[in-house]
């Protein structure tokens, strides 16, 4: 981002302040949607500030009331169950302890949605990728890791998208593991948080390649879709059939007198 862009953004933010200030606040801090970063024995803190940026853009562009801060939460912490959305980012191999794995599995089973974000610099880090697969296989041995179809609602939750943009475009797809009809965990290969990471002054620190700022915007959108998928699940699938659903019942019930 250059200076002009930064000033423009700041002015727009100031102009939006009255609207933001008048916005209703959640009834309790826990009722705001938190974007958690999973802490583990590894490079969990890559791309700092990215989740805060994502949280902010969700808050400003949608009706979703997100928390300003994105807590870093160990898997063994009770705070894990404060939110249903979390990101486990990294750029090298890692191994979860049995307790961590067990807690994560329970969190996912109860409804949590986890994004594994591969922050490899020049290519998706194979160590991180292998570790993710190993952990998912250990937690869900009966569930294969599958590609998420471009038709999947994740690509339509808010924005209509064709590909999962990140800081890079190493792979045009994401993969995931299902729990029932929903994806409980997805693997993003394109360093999503790398496109959103900011310094303490709020400046983006990395330039997405090859698409630059446009690509950053697309990464932002993809991150928003992931976040809203965790909150709305397959709501958008129903919207396609809304007319049918609305008019399905052509009659009115006459209840017993």
């Amino acid at each position: 981002m250059n200076r002009r862009q930064f000033l423009t953004m700041s002015a727009a933010s100031l102009a939006a302040l009255p609207l933001l200030r008048s916005r209703a606040r959640a009834l309790g801090v826990q009722q705001k949607l938190q974007l958690m970063r999973i802490q583990y024995d590894g490079a969990y803190d890559v791309n700092p500030g990215a989740l805060e940026a994502l949280s902010e853009v969700v808050r400003t562009r949608t009706s979703t009331d997100t928390a300003e801060l994105s807590p870093v939460v160990p898997l063994t912490s009770p705070a894990l169950h404060d939110s249903l959305f979390a990101v486990l980012a990294g750029d090298r191999a890692f191994t979860l302890t049995p307790e961590e794995r067990s807690r994560l599995e329970r969190w996912l089973g109860l409804g949590g949605f986890l994004v594994f974000d591969n922050a490899g610099r020049t290519a998706p880090d194979m160590g991180f990728d292998r570790s993710v697969r190993a952990e998912l296989n250990a937690m869900f041995p009966d569930q294969p890791i599958e590609r998420v179809s471009p038709e999947h609602v994740i690509y339509r939750t808010f924005y209509r998208l064709d590909y999962p943009a990140g800081r890079a475009i190493f792979k045009p797809y994401i993969e995931g593991v299902r729990q029932g009809s929903r994806f409980a965990a997805v693997i993003v290969h394109n360093d999503l948080l790398g496109a959103l990471t900011r310094d303490s002054l709020g400046r983006y620190t990395q330039v997405p390649t090859p698409g630059g700022e446009n690509q950053r915007e697309m990464a932002m959108r993809f991150g928003m879709n992931l976040m809203l998928y965790s909150a709305c699940l397959h709501y958008k699938d129903d919207q396609v059939h809304i007319d049918f659903l609305l008019h399905k019942r052509k009659w009115k019930i006459t209840p017993p007198e």
Partner: peptide, 21 residues
Amino acid sequence: LVSFFILVELGQPQLSSRETS
């Protein structure tokens, strides 16, 4: 079930219907 979610508030930036769902 028929659900309607209000995903955008009044006063938020207008979004293109081509780009969003």
